Simulated scan of single mutants.
Amino acid sequence: MILTDERWRELLHTRATNPGAIRQAYATRKRRPQLLSDQDTLFLVSADQPARGAPDRRALLERLLVALDNPAVDGVLGTPDVVEELLLLDALHEKVVLGAMNRDDGFTGYDAGTLVDCGLDGGEMLLRLPGTASARQACADAVTELAAYGLVAMIEPLPYAGSEGKPVPQEDPESLARAVTVASGLGTTSAHTWLKLPSPGSAAVLGATTLPVVLSGPPAADPESWMLWHGVVRGLVMDLTRLGGSVGPAVEAAAKVLEAAK
């Protein structure tokens, strides 16, 4: 699927003249009947932080269209604006769509009710730890509400520690394992909870949960080194906001590694 000049102009025209087209696009999206692929895996591309690196929007959408055109890609994880642009471009039929709910302690993206109303498949949330009690409660409430509607709650737990007044991400397995246990217990049920964890993964971190996991990391990293074979790992997330070079070959290579691992 190519974002031609004509399609780009049409998208901009729709944005300016017909805001109701977005609601119509949500309502008419063809949902796929299951979350996992036929191989019981989940391969998502991500644009949940489009402001990172201030990418050109047309270039980002072109990358997403190329990736989504690959049948091995199950779907996308994105903020409302990105999801809606892909909807207007007819790129999300029969794809899994997870909406980004927050990127900090406040929930400023999708909420659970809107995800249900829009017919999306779940929501993704960032959980900074130790963080604040209110942030943990907001994540727990979102998990509970999403589960009540049978939607996926994908939690990305990120442990932090103070360093001269500035929080620093903790990447050691012990800190990540503790964060996994906290995230796993949020909400009134974990039946629909998934975890998004940094690649390549480690036995200590992945062994801290029975919840399904997707591994996420820099697209340039070698996916063959990722622990995709681990029992709790069900797939991967490729962040296209950090991908340099050609999208097609990178997506194809990652898909082959995932298929071989499972």
Score class of each variant (00 low, 15 high):
V152F: 03
T132C: 01
A140W: 06
T41E: 11
P50Q: 10
N102K: 02
L77N: 02
S46Q: 07
T41Q: 12
Y160M: 04
P167M: 07
G131E: 01
R52A: 11
L92I: 11
T28Q: 15
R31Y: 10
R57E: 15
D90P: 04
L68E: 06
L89K: 03
T79Q: 07
E124T: 11
P130G: 01
A112Q: 10
H93Y: 13
C139V: 15
Y26S: 10
Q49I: 11
L129G: 00
L64P: 03
S46A: 13
L158I: 01
R58P: 06
S163L: 08
Q137A: 11
A27Y: 12
P167I: 06
I22T: 15
V96P: 01
L126A: 06
A148V: 12
H93K: 12
L61D: 06
P50E: 12
T132L: 07
L35H: 10
A21V: 14
D104M: 07
P33F: 06
A59P: 05
D90I: 06
D141A: 07
L65A: 10
Y149M: 01
R63N: 04
R57L: 13
D38G: 14
A112G: 05
S134C: 01
A51T: 14
F43T: 04
G75M: 07
A21W: 10
A100W: 03
P157H: 00
V143M: 04
G165Y: 12
V76L: 05
Y149S: 05
R58F: 08
F107Q: 10
L92D: 14
V83Q: 10
P159Y: 00
V116Q: 13
A100F: 02
T114N: 09
R23A: 15
V82I: 15
L126F: 08
F43Q: 06
T28D: 14
V66T: 07
G99Y: 02
D74V: 03
L115N: 11
A112R: 02
E84H: 09
V76Y: 03
G113A: 11
P50S: 09
L77Y: 11
I155C: 00
M125Q: 07
D111Y: 08
H93L: 10
V76C: 01
L60C: 03
D104W: 11
R136M: 09
I22R: 14
Q137G: 13
I22C: 08
D81K: 11
G122F: 09
A27L: 15
A100R: 05
L88F: 15
Q49G: 09
P80V: 00
A51M: 13
F43V: 03
A25Q: 15
L158C: 00
F107A: 10
V97M: 01
G119C: 06
A142L: 01
K30S: 10
V66H: 04
V82Q: 08
E145L: 03
R57Q: 13
M101H: 01
G131K: 03
A100D: 04
L115A: 08
A100Q: 08
E164N: 11
